[in-house]
Protein backbone atom coordinates (compact mmCIF):
# COMPACT_ATOMS: atom_id res chain seq x y z
CA UNK A 1 0.00 0.00 0.00
CA UNK A 2 2.72 2.44 1.10
CA UNK A 3 6.16 1.87 -0.31
CA UNK A 4 9.11 3.98 0.78
CA UNK A 5 12.42 3.57 -0.97
CA UNK A 6 15.73 5.17 -0.09
CA UNK A 7 14.21 8.22 1.55
CA UNK A 8 16.69 10.88 2.67
CA UNK A 9 15.62 14.14 4.27
CA UNK A 10 17.90 16.96 5.29
CA UNK A 11 17.56 20.04 7.42
CA UNK A 12 20.07 22.35 5.83
CA UNK A 13 23.20 20.25 5.67
CA UNK A 14 21.99 17.83 8.32
CA UNK A 15 20.58 14.49 7.23
CA UNK A 16 17.88 13.54 9.70
CA UNK A 17 16.84 10.55 7.62
CA UNK A 18 19.32 8.49 5.63
CA UNK A 19 18.10 6.31 2.83
CA UNK A 20 15.24 4.74 4.77
CA UNK A 21 13.11 2.08 3.09
CA UNK A 22 9.98 0.51 4.46
CA UNK A 23 6.56 -0.65 3.46
CA UNK A 24 3.07 -0.82 4.88
CA UNK A 25 0.59 -3.36 3.56
CA UNK A 26 -3.12 -2.94 3.56
CA UNK A 27 -4.75 -3.81 6.89
CA UNK A 28 -1.48 -3.87 8.81
CA UNK A 29 -0.49 -2.06 11.96
CA UNK A 30 3.14 -1.08 11.50
CA UNK A 31 5.17 0.28 14.38
CA UNK A 32 8.07 2.63 13.95
CA UNK A 33 10.20 2.69 17.06
CA UNK A 34 13.51 4.21 17.99
CA UNK A 35 15.09 6.70 20.33
CA UNK A 36 14.58 10.42 20.32
CA UNK A 37 16.23 12.04 17.35
CA UNK A 38 16.28 8.81 15.35
CA UNK A 39 14.35 10.43 12.54
CA UNK A 40 10.90 8.96 13.20
CA UNK A 41 9.04 12.26 13.09
CA UNK A 42 11.11 13.32 10.10
CA UNK A 43 10.03 10.16 8.32
CA UNK A 44 6.34 10.77 8.96
CA UNK A 45 6.73 14.44 8.03
CA UNK A 46 8.40 13.44 4.77
CA UNK A 47 5.59 11.05 3.92
CA UNK A 48 2.89 13.54 4.86
CA UNK A 49 4.40 16.34 2.78
CA UNK A 50 5.41 18.61 5.65
CA UNK A 51 9.07 18.10 4.72
CA UNK A 52 10.49 17.59 1.28
CA UNK A 53 12.79 14.61 0.95
CA UNK A 54 16.10 15.16 -0.82
CA UNK A 55 16.28 11.67 -2.27
CA UNK A 56 14.13 8.58 -2.55
CA UNK A 57 10.51 7.92 -3.38
CA UNK A 58 7.25 7.48 -1.56
CA UNK A 59 4.48 5.68 -3.37
CA UNK A 60 0.98 5.05 -2.17
CA UNK A 61 -1.29 2.49 -3.84
CA UNK A 62 1.00 2.50 -6.82
CA UNK A 63 1.10 6.27 -7.28
CA UNK A 64 4.26 8.26 -6.72
CA UNK A 65 3.52 10.84 -4.06
CA UNK A 66 7.05 11.97 -3.21
CA UNK A 67 7.08 15.56 -2.04
CA UNK A 68 3.37 16.16 -2.64
CA UNK A 69 1.66 18.84 -0.53
CA UNK A 70 -0.05 17.64 2.66
CA UNK A 71 -3.49 18.64 1.45
CA UNK A 72 -2.99 16.47 -1.66
CA UNK A 73 -1.87 13.48 0.38
CA UNK A 74 -4.88 13.72 2.59
CA UNK A 75 -7.05 13.56 -0.50
CA UNK A 76 -5.03 10.59 -1.70
CA UNK A 77 -6.03 8.79 1.52
CA UNK A 78 -3.22 9.38 4.03
CA UNK A 79 -3.92 11.15 7.31
CA UNK A 80 -1.41 12.05 10.01
CA UNK A 81 -2.05 12.56 13.71
CA UNK A 82 0.83 14.94 14.36
CA UNK A 83 3.22 14.89 17.29
CA UNK A 84 1.95 16.88 20.29
CA UNK A 85 -1.58 16.39 18.85
CA UNK A 86 -1.79 19.94 17.58
CA UNK A 87 -5.51 20.24 17.96
CA UNK A 88 -7.01 23.67 17.30
CA UNK A 89 -7.40 24.87 20.86
CA UNK A 90 -9.71 27.79 20.09
CA UNK A 91 -12.08 25.66 18.06
CA UNK A 92 -14.67 23.41 19.68
CA UNK A 93 -14.42 19.64 19.50
CA UNK A 94 -17.10 19.60 16.85
CA UNK A 95 -15.28 22.22 14.79
CA UNK A 96 -12.02 20.32 15.09
CA UNK A 97 -13.72 17.23 13.77
CA UNK A 98 -15.38 19.18 10.98
CA UNK A 99 -12.02 20.48 9.85
CA UNK A 100 -10.82 16.90 9.81
CA UNK A 101 -13.68 16.10 7.48
CA UNK A 102 -13.21 19.06 5.16
CA UNK A 103 -12.60 16.76 2.21
CA UNK A 104 -15.78 14.70 2.50
CA UNK A 105 -19.26 15.73 1.48
CA UNK A 106 -21.54 17.49 3.90
CA UNK A 107 -23.88 14.54 4.39
CA UNK A 108 -21.00 12.14 4.85
CA UNK A 109 -19.46 14.53 7.33
CA UNK A 110 -22.62 14.44 9.42
CA UNK A 111 -22.55 10.63 9.46
CA UNK A 112 -18.87 10.59 10.41
CA UNK A 113 -19.43 13.11 13.19
CA UNK A 114 -22.03 10.79 14.67
CA UNK A 115 -19.67 7.86 14.29
CA UNK A 116 -16.85 9.68 16.10
CA UNK A 117 -19.16 10.68 18.91
CA UNK A 118 -20.02 6.99 19.34
CA UNK A 119 -16.43 5.77 19.12
CA UNK A 120 -15.13 8.49 21.45
CA UNK A 121 -17.83 9.08 24.06
CA UNK A 122 -15.62 11.55 25.98
CA UNK A 123 -15.79 13.87 23.01
CA UNK A 124 -19.56 13.82 22.90
CA UNK A 125 -19.60 15.25 26.42
CA UNK A 126 -17.33 18.11 25.38
CA UNK A 127 -18.83 18.61 21.93
CA UNK A 128 -19.09 22.39 22.08
CA UNK A 129 -16.17 23.00 24.44
CA UNK A 130 -13.11 24.73 23.01
CA UNK A 131 -10.54 21.99 22.55
CA UNK A 132 -8.04 23.88 24.68
CA UNK A 133 -9.99 22.82 27.76
CA UNK A 134 -9.58 19.12 27.05
CA UNK A 135 -7.26 16.98 29.14
CA UNK A 136 -4.27 15.35 27.49
CA UNK A 137 -6.01 12.04 26.95
CA UNK A 138 -9.15 13.66 25.59
CA UNK A 139 -7.08 15.84 23.30
CA UNK A 140 -5.26 12.80 21.94
CA UNK A 141 -8.57 11.10 21.22
CA UNK A 142 -9.79 14.23 19.52
CA UNK A 143 -6.65 14.36 17.39
CA UNK A 144 -7.15 10.76 16.31
CA UNK A 145 -10.85 11.24 15.68
CA UNK A 146 -10.10 14.37 13.69
CA UNK A 147 -7.74 12.42 11.44
CA UNK A 148 -10.31 9.64 11.00
CA UNK A 149 -12.85 12.18 9.75
CA UNK A 150 -11.20 12.19 6.35
CA UNK A 151 -11.80 8.42 6.01
CA UNK A 152 -8.12 7.74 5.45
CA UNK A 153 -7.02 4.41 4.03
CA UNK A 154 -3.72 4.88 5.87
CA UNK A 155 -3.59 6.52 9.27
CA UNK A 156 -0.23 7.65 10.60
CA UNK A 157 0.27 8.60 14.24
CA UNK A 158 3.26 10.39 15.71
CA UNK A 159 3.93 9.54 19.36
CA UNK A 160 0.30 9.17 20.40
CA UNK A 161 1.22 8.29 24.01
CA UNK A 162 3.58 11.22 24.46
CA UNK A 163 3.07 13.16 27.66
CA UNK A 164 0.11 11.09 28.84
CA UNK A 165 -0.41 9.60 32.29
CA UNK A 166 0.01 5.77 32.40
CA UNK A 167 -3.76 5.17 32.53
CA UNK A 168 -4.20 7.27 29.42
CA UNK A 169 -1.34 5.52 27.68
CA UNK A 170 -3.42 2.37 28.14
CA UNK A 171 -6.38 4.14 26.58
CA UNK A 172 -4.30 5.07 23.55
CA UNK A 173 -2.99 1.55 23.01
CA UNK A 174 -6.47 0.11 23.50
CA UNK A 175 -7.60 2.54 20.85
CA UNK A 176 -4.88 1.40 18.47
CA UNK A 177 -6.00 -2.17 19.09
CA UNK A 178 -9.60 -1.17 18.35
CA UNK A 179 -8.62 0.54 15.13
CA UNK A 180 -6.69 -2.56 14.19
CA UNK A 181 -9.76 -4.69 14.74
CA UNK A 182 -11.72 -2.37 12.49
CA UNK A 183 -9.26 -3.38 9.79
CA UNK A 184 -7.61 -0.01 9.43
CA UNK A 185 -4.07 0.39 8.19
CA UNK A 186 -1.86 2.18 10.69
CA UNK A 187 1.70 3.43 10.75
CA UNK A 188 2.53 4.44 14.31
CA UNK A 189 5.64 6.14 15.64
CA UNK A 190 6.16 5.34 19.30
CA UNK A 191 8.84 5.64 21.91
CA UNK A 192 7.07 3.21 24.19
CA UNK A 193 8.61 0.30 22.31
CA UNK A 194 7.26 -2.70 24.19
CA UNK A 195 3.69 -1.52 24.16
CA UNK A 196 3.92 -0.64 20.52
CA UNK A 197 5.43 -3.95 19.48
CA UNK A 198 2.65 -5.78 21.30
CA UNK A 199 0.03 -4.25 19.05
CA UNK A 200 2.08 -4.18 15.83
CA UNK A 201 1.85 -6.69 13.02
CA UNK A 202 5.26 -5.59 11.91
CA UNK A 203 7.67 -2.94 13.06
CA UNK A 204 10.77 -1.07 12.05
CA UNK A 205 13.48 0.15 14.40
CA UNK A 206 14.92 3.48 13.38
CA UNK A 207 18.27 4.63 14.66
CA UNK A 208 20.27 7.68 13.62
CA UNK A 209 18.08 8.18 10.59
CA UNK A 210 18.49 4.63 9.33
CA UNK A 211 16.35 1.51 9.53
CA UNK A 212 18.29 -0.63 12.01
CA UNK A 213 15.96 -3.62 12.19
CA UNK A 214 12.61 -4.86 11.03
CA UNK A 215 10.35 -7.80 11.72
CA UNK A 216 7.06 -8.81 13.21
CA UNK A 217 6.16 -7.33 16.55
CA UNK A 218 6.75 -10.68 18.25
CA UNK A 219 10.15 -11.16 16.61
CA UNK A 220 11.37 -7.78 17.65
CA UNK A 221 10.12 -8.24 21.18
CA UNK A 222 12.38 -11.28 21.45
CA UNK A 223 15.46 -9.41 20.41
CA UNK A 224 16.85 -8.10 23.65
CA UNK A 225 19.81 -6.54 21.85
CA UNK A 226 17.48 -3.95 20.39
CA UNK A 227 16.72 -2.66 23.80
CA UNK A 228 20.23 -1.45 24.07
CA UNK A 229 18.99 1.26 21.81
CA UNK A 230 16.79 2.43 24.61
CA UNK A 231 18.25 1.21 27.86
CA UNK A 232 21.86 0.49 27.14
CA UNK A 233 24.18 -2.03 28.79
Amino acid sequence: MLQITGLTTRYGSISALRSASLEVRSGEVVGLIGPNGAGKTTLLGSIAGLLSPAEGTVSFEGTDITGAAPEKLLRAGIALVPEHRRIFVDLTCEENLKIGGITVSKSERAVLLEEMADTFPVLRDKWTTPAGFLSGGEAQQLAIARALMSKPRLLMMDEPSLGLAPVLVDVVFDLIATLKEQGRTLLVVEQNATRMLEVSDRAYVLRSGEVAAEGTGAELLERSDLFDTFVGG
Binding site: P35, N36, P166, Q191, F230, V231, G232, G233
Partner: peptide
Amino acid sequence: DHDLAFITGISDRIYVFDQ
Protein backbone atom coordinates in the same frame (compact mmCIF):
# COMPACT_ATOMS: atom_id res chain seq x y z
CA ASP B 1 19.57 12.49 27.27
CA HIS B 2 17.10 9.78 26.46
CA ASP B 3 19.92 7.37 25.64
CA LEU B 4 20.89 5.40 28.73
CA ALA B 5 24.07 4.11 27.12
CA PHE B 6 25.32 7.63 26.64
CA ILE B 7 24.20 8.82 30.05
CA THR B 8 25.66 5.91 31.94
CA GLY B 9 28.86 6.25 29.98
CA ILE B 10 29.33 9.88 30.81
CA SER B 11 27.75 10.57 34.20
CA ASP B 12 29.08 10.43 37.71
CA ARG B 13 25.55 10.50 39.05
CA ILE B 14 22.18 10.13 37.36
CA TYR B 15 18.69 11.40 38.10
CA VAL B 16 15.80 9.59 36.45
CA PHE B 17 12.76 11.69 35.57
CA ASP B 18 9.33 10.38 34.84
CA GLN B 19 6.01 12.24 34.68
